[in-house]
Design a protein around this nucleic acid. Structure first.
Lengths: 245, 245
DNA sequence: CCTTAATGTGTAAAAAGTACATATCTTCGA
DNA sequence: TCGAAGATATGTACTTTTTACACATTAAGG
């Protein structure tokens, strides 16, 4: 009737850590969304595992023992995209026994929203590319499942929380915003009803400018009100804590 | 630009598993809800860690290397309550560096809904008890945070999904159901509007019986329609898979 | 048999969501 | 420079959902 995970004293951890319990790897996988060419896209990399040759996988890495899991996902994002002020949110853990062909690795899935226009990242590396979510089929590992879970979470959140603006430039037109919602939700929306709904939320302010270089009548530009634009916490990597091992 | 978690070949895993990366423990913690005495309660155990002396903690355990994380939470529930056909759902992982005083342990939180009336479990062990959610203050580890997250998830789900019935006996009155919703959501509901809303969902069927032994006019009894009563998947513990270690 | 305490039920008003059409502005090409 | 094309901007009637609210009925208990 006691709880082994509580029971562990320092000495005991040392004793068993290299035996049964601590033989599980923990990784973080990031579903990095962007909005480009009127499509919701995800950043994927060609898998370098033989078992998954020809398939893509998410960006991920093992969590370091002295690293918070949120920080691990920020680190991956920073390493891959160079960006560090991004929206990131944990979705859930995936822990099927055979999800990793090389051993037991439990992964924690995060999704991220970035503005591709502001941060043009170097994709010279042709192993790393953006793929439209709607066209993603087979993936390495359980990554298709992870993407689906993250997309669903995103869809559930955009109606109540002003988060999609992380996918857009600072200034945008209502048409762009509507097309983004349509891309995420996978439905067509009525323009007048959409504008009414957005107006009620009172998230936006008119920046007093108009679209430029569009081949039609330009629309007004808006931006998210500052009060909703709160930066995510700075995720400094803290000094390593003295560990027991 | 490569992904260490993918890179791992069997030999490499063996080489590093006892070094840096695999020195993280993975546990599962269960927020086991029941409904009793018109209150939502959680099953807690007195912590046996010195650091948390006098505090309660959730029921949890380390995940075994050959065990699916969902199965780990079922195992804990089975061990602690004797029940194995329960509603269980993962919420998220908690992975702050210093959340466990004895070392690095990442935990995955689940919540569970059980009907205390049907399965009277032996609480002779006075280290293990039910506590009203509304009265829980300080907890061992980050378990207060975990309980709050699980409660929020539960609150978000009960309006759309017929899951609260896992907390009730097979037959129940609409008053009992309403009181349960009130206990979970922490608000008072209007009786007529509540009944209308439940009627629209069409989840219930009249069992043709009345309450008994109540000190007032008895109400009709209802039960959840069979089509919504789908048992959770049987979670057999699978044969251990050959592992690399 | 009278009191108490709960069950059971409907309607009107307000709010939110949906369907839908016309005038205006800018570009572009004839 | 004029007209056509294509997008912006906007309001209203209709439907659905949500909310607020009161009274007759039933069984238990003294």
């Amino acid at each position: 009737m006691t709880n082994p995970s509580q029971h562990l004293k320092t000495a005991e951890i040392e004793k068993i850590s290299h035996l049964e319990y601590f033989n599980i790897g923990v990784s973080v996988d990031c579903v990095i969304f962007c909005y480009d060419d009127k499509q919701l896209k995800v950043l994927l990399i060609r898998s370098d595992l033989e078992e998954f040759s020809g398939l893509n996988s998410l960006l991920g890495d093992l969590v370091r023992p002295d690293e918070d899991i949120d920080n691990a996902s920020y680190r991956i994002l920073k390493e891959r995209t160079g960006m560090d002020d991004v929206y990131l949110e944990q979705v859930q853990a995936f822990g099927a026994i055979d999800r990793h062909p090389s051993g037991r690795v439990i992964t924690i899935a995060y999704y991220s929203l970035i503005d591709i226009k502001n941060h043009r990242l170097q994709l010279d590396n042709n192993e790393l590319n953006w793929y439209p979510v709607s066209q993603i089929r087979k993936m390495a590992f359980d990554h298709k499942l992870i993407i689906d879970s993250c997309l669903k979470r995103l869809q559930d959140q955009i109606l109540d929380n002003p988060i999609v603006f992380n996918l857009l430039p600072h200034k945008f037109s209502l048409r762009e915003l509507q097309e983004l919602y349509e891309a995420i939700l996978g439905v067509k929306l009525d323009r007048r009803n959409f504008r009414k709904k957005i107006a009620i939320k009172d998230w936006l302010e008119d920046v007093g400018e108009m679209e430029e270089d569009v081949p039609h009548r330009p629309g007004k530009l808006y931006s998210l009100k500052a009060e909703y634009r709160k930066k995510p916490n700075r995720h400094k990597i803290p000094a390593p804590k003295a560990l027991t091992s």
